[in-house]
Simulated assay, not measured.
Amino acid sequence: MKYWLFLALAIVAEVIGTSALKGSNGFTRLWPTLIVVTSYSVAFYFLALSLKAIPVGIAYAIWAGLGVVLITLVGWLALDQKLDGAAIAGVSLIVAGVAVINLFSGAGGH
């Protein structure tokens, strides 16, 4: 169970880092840049720890899928980015894919 917690921490750190990317203005602003570098370092550290028990393909699919969903929500809620029907449908398919992996696949090692 702790490896799934490590994966969750990796996802949260990645979303924080990605959220700060825009504010870094191409890595020209110090504090947002430090948040990006620190967050991605933490994300990769916890992703690496999660790989001790979770297959790399499954961990990466969940990390990337949930990261896309969460950063889309951050963009919509905090950055006033608009989502059209196609974007909502695409994100919904990502959620469905992550759910199928977690609920029905034996490859996830749970």
Score class of each variant (00 low, 15 high):
residue 103 L to W: 09
residue 31 W to K: 06
residue 103 L to C: 13
residue 51 L to T: 03
residue 12 V to E: 00
residue 82 K to T: 11
residue 92 S to M: 10
residue 90 G to Q: 01
residue 27 F to L: 11
residue 42 V to C: 08
residue 28 T to Y: 13
residue 22 K to D: 01
residue 85 G to D: 08
residue 37 V to H: 03
residue 95 V to P: 05
residue 68 V to D: 04
residue 12 V to Q: 02
residue 25 N to I: 00
residue 46 F to R: 09
residue 31 W to N: 04
residue 57 G to Q: 05
residue 104 F to M: 06
residue 46 F to Y: 11
residue 109 G to I: 11
residue 38 T to Y: 04
residue 65 G to T: 07
residue 32 P to F: 10
residue 47 L to G: 01
residue 97 G to T: 02
residue 100 V to E: 04
residue 30 L to D: 03
residue 105 S to H: 09
residue 56 V to A: 05
residue 107 A to H: 10
residue 70 L to A: 13
residue 59 A to N: 04
residue 39 S to D: 04
residue 75 G to H: 05
residue 41 S to R: 08
residue 95 V to F: 02
residue 74 V to N: 02
residue 22 K to H: 13
residue 50 S to I: 08
residue 33 T to G: 06
residue 60 Y to D: 00
residue 25 N to V: 03
residue 94 I to C: 10
residue 55 P to M: 04
residue 60 Y to R: 04
residue 48 A to G: 14
residue 60 Y to N: 01
residue 38 T to C: 07
residue 24 S to Y: 03
residue 103 L to M: 08
residue 8 A to K: 09
residue 33 T to R: 09
residue 73 L to T: 08
residue 102 N to R: 14
residue 93 L to V: 10
residue 79 L to K: 06
residue 60 Y to E: 00
residue 89 A to L: 15
residue 101 I to P: 05
residue 23 G to I: 05
